[in-house]
Structures are given as structure tokens and as C-alpha cells.
Amino acid sequence: MARYTPPEQSKAGQVFDIAVVVVAIFVALWLPLKLGLAGAAKSIDALDAKTWEALGQNPTMASIWEKLGYTPETAHDIIQNRFHYIIDWPTLIIMAAVLIGYFIFLFRASDREYRDVINEKFDDK
């Protein structure tokens, strides 16, 4: 197999590629934050009666909350802020499809590139 000679990349091209990578990193990590897609999906189950008993705290737990500087009123939003694990099947299916599709593409495209690497490396010998 003929040895592949890659083109030399100009300085401007290198700068452009660095910019692409930086933009991609910020879009991937910053955009979910900006769009509110990152972070925990929790909500507060509000209670009318804000007492340690109503919040499900026994005397030992209540004494620790107080030691930490909390009252039933200030602890309410922490204790009642809960996850609600309802499986959203369409979203789960989309997530699974994206993940599986991603890995299939990765392994198949990598294998095509890998065959070139192996052919060039070992056909030289």
C-alpha cells in the first residue's frame, strides 16, 4: 500500500481548527447550562404544616438540623425538594438510540481508519 502523505496545514488553518474546537467545547458545555438543560430535575412538594414531625424528622434528626442552624421553615425546601422518578419512555428511547448510534458510528468509522493504519504499518515490512 502506498504511504499516505498528509497535507501540511497552514498556520491559519491551525488557528481555525483550534477555534472550531474551542467553540465546540463551549457549545457542548455552556449551551446546556444556558438553556437550563443541565442540573437536577427536582421540585418541591410543599407542606402546609411546617413542623419537624410533618417533615418526617424524629427528635435526633431535628436536633441535628437545629445544630446546623435550620428551623422547620428553612429546612422545608431542602427536605421537600424531591426527585420524581417517572420514566419518560420516548425520551429514554431517544437517549438509547443516540448512545447506541454514537457507539456504532465510532466503532465502524474507527475500524475503517484502523485498517488503513494497519495496512500501511505492516505492508511496509
Binding site: 446546556p32 438543560l37 443541565a38 437536577a40 437517549m95
Partner: peptide, 14 residues
């Protein structure tokens, strides 16, 4: 996925 699904999909898409 349970609680942070959107973040996961966004990252894999990247």
C-alpha cells in the same frame, strides 16, 4: 437519565 437526561443527550450529541 433519571434526573439529568437532557444533559446526557446534549453531551452525546456534541
Amino acid at each position: 437519565f433519571l434526573g439529568f437526561g437532557s444533559q446526557l443527550i446534549a453531551m452525546v450529541a456534541f
